[in-house]
Write a protein that binds this DNA or RNA. Structure first.
Lengths: 223, 223
DNA sequence: GATATAATTTAAGCACACTTAAATTTATAA
DNA sequence: TTATAAATTTAAGTGTGCTTAAATTATATC
């Protein structure tokens, strides 16, 4: 049987490491909702298995084979999400959670078949790029964090971080999804929260939430 | 998180209990390829959780809620198999193994959606009946064990037990699948093995193997 | 550079799902 | 009926992945 926990750790490390490829054990514990002691335990096993570099009291980083494995896990996750969304027509905000439970059992063979059915998709339902069989990522689309978008500029949602189910459900409930058109009306200095228009409705959103939504500015029509 | 092992035990008990609804701990151990001691352990937990009836040294049987659970697990398994076979076009002999790994993560919601996509299938790719949402089984098709089929009678394969991956792969490799036409040419008294014709080819098959394949006699055309 | 505080690791312990080996209970056959 | 064989359970132990609490190391501030 496969090692479910190890897979989760590897994915988390890949997704949340910093620019230098390093992640603190604290961050892992927070993202997985477990104790730091548990992370120390597992991190030693992953190091023993050659998947990460680890020295006590420093953060960890993926080795070559760790990164290869991570990319394969990401690929599996994103193809399954695309499949549930596009073919099974499961609601946008539900697919991430479903796939978290489903993915550990899916074989490479199944993933490859789904990729063919989907005609080699480049981005998943949250706008994240899908690595191909060799691990090559399509180039990320340029996008701006919603909390950094200048006011009164219309923009299109192209990516939403799928770090948290509750966040995804909330975002969907206020009418935001891929390709939604949004416009920031104002940013409050008090708490940095923003007021934005989606589908003609005004909603308020914390800076933290907005910083997990990425948009592309709409090109102005040529007059 | 769900309890993977408990689900496996419940399914095995449901599938391999005898006419009186009872299964010996020995049988469970054999079918799951684990020790008898492990079965004793788990059987106490299942009993504690109200899913089975258990008295030391006697076999076990499912309680009402155990049976309800079993039927739901069977439903999940068979719908996922049908889905992989009919929609993803995965080979017949591969779907059982894939689903064994996949099923523990699939939500009822997903299963229900797949059922709709499949237009409420009644039988899975191995010919087993699929219970509906309420647990109602379509009535089993009348069929004869292949080792009991009279010689020289043509018959159609309508069900194959999916108890073992190796068996399924072998069966597929000799050209037998659902709706295959077969005819028993002779049965050897020596070891009860049979010689049968499939697609014009003659093959020999042990009685044990044949007893896991079920066929319907072809109606004779009216002359 | 000493010291307070924050991050991390170690220690001890728990539940789970297994194992092998020994003991016990049940079934079978003389 | 009793000896023996077969099935089952108990006992002791293992690896995994977690926990809390205490000890250690790193970092930030004066």
């Amino acid at each position: 049987m496969k090692n479910i926990s190890q897979e989760d750790y590897i994915s988390i490390i890949y997704k949340h490491r910093d620019g230098g490829g390093v992640i603190k054990s604290n961050t892992i514990a927070e993202r997985m909702n477990i104790s730091n002691a548990a992370v120390t335990d597992m991190v030693r096993k992953l190091s023993r298995d050659g998947l990460i570099n680890y020295t006590r009291y420093k953060g960890v980083s993926l080795t070559g084979s760790g990164e290869t494995k991570a990319i394969n896990l990401i690929r599996r996750h994103r193809i399954l999400e695309s499949f549930l969304y596009k073919i099974v027509k499961m609601p946008w905000e539900k697919v991430h959670e479903e796939v978290e439970n489903l993915e550990h059992g899916a074989s490479d063979d199944l993933v490859n078949r789904l990729e063919v059915m989907l005609e080699y998709p480049e981005y998943d339902p949250h706008g994240d790029p899908i690595p191909d069989k060799k691990g090559k990522m399509p180039k990320a689309r340029s996008a701006v964090r919603l909390d950094l978008l200048p006011t009164e500029k219309s923009a299109i949602v192209v990516r939403v971080n799928d770090y948290d189910h509750e966040f995804l459900r909330y975002v969907a409930s206020v009418g935001i999804t891929m390709s939604s058109e949004v416009k920031v009306k104002s940013q409050l200095n008090f708490d940095k929260s923003i007021v934005l228009t989606v589908d003609g409705n005004d909603i308020n959103m914390s800076q933290k939430m907005a910083s997990n939504i990425f948009v592309q500015e709409k090109k102005n029509r040529i007059k």
